[in-house]
Amino acid sequence: MFSVNQEPFEAIVQRHGPRVLRVCRAVVGPTAADDAWSETFLSALQAYPTLPAGSNVEAWLVTIAHRKAVDQVRGQSRRAVPTGDLPELASTGSGGPGGWESDLWAALKALPLRQRQTVAYHYLGGLPYADVATILGGTPQAARRAAADGIAALRRAYLTPEPDTRA
């Protein structure tokens, strides 16, 4: 006998939805985040009745979101035929110029995927490095290093004022 989770799924959406959205946005960007979030919660809803009671729901959701985001990133690179510089897709979200959808996302997007994932799962998903390592493979130490590198790169790209780059 094992006991399973019997809390209404709606409570899971309310409690974890915003944080998972933040993770999806940081990993796949503003345009694709809606799809990643939707696919994550639909998969989670399907599997939910068999989730053992006492599971770490946040880690479970981030793991599903990770798989959905990886599918999307692969899909994006398949679709991205190398035809020189393409203009950025227009954002469909609410962030204006200077909001996360331009500057912060540009800086996140410039990170290697693994650093971006590590940073998102640890800093935005709130998962300890041990859990991040379980999701991404590798050791917790490697996850910690990837996150540190990612944060350092983000600081340089996003927080450091750039002197006169357009002159």
Binding site: G17, W100, L104
Partner: peptide, 19 residues
């Protein structure tokens, strides 16, 4: 660093919940 990425985005959450 992530302050620009909203922790709560009520519009998006409503839209995604309906979806």
């Amino acid at each position: 660093l992530f302050a620009a990425l909203p922790e709560v985005d009520a519009d998006a959450e409503r839209r995604l919940h309906a979806r």
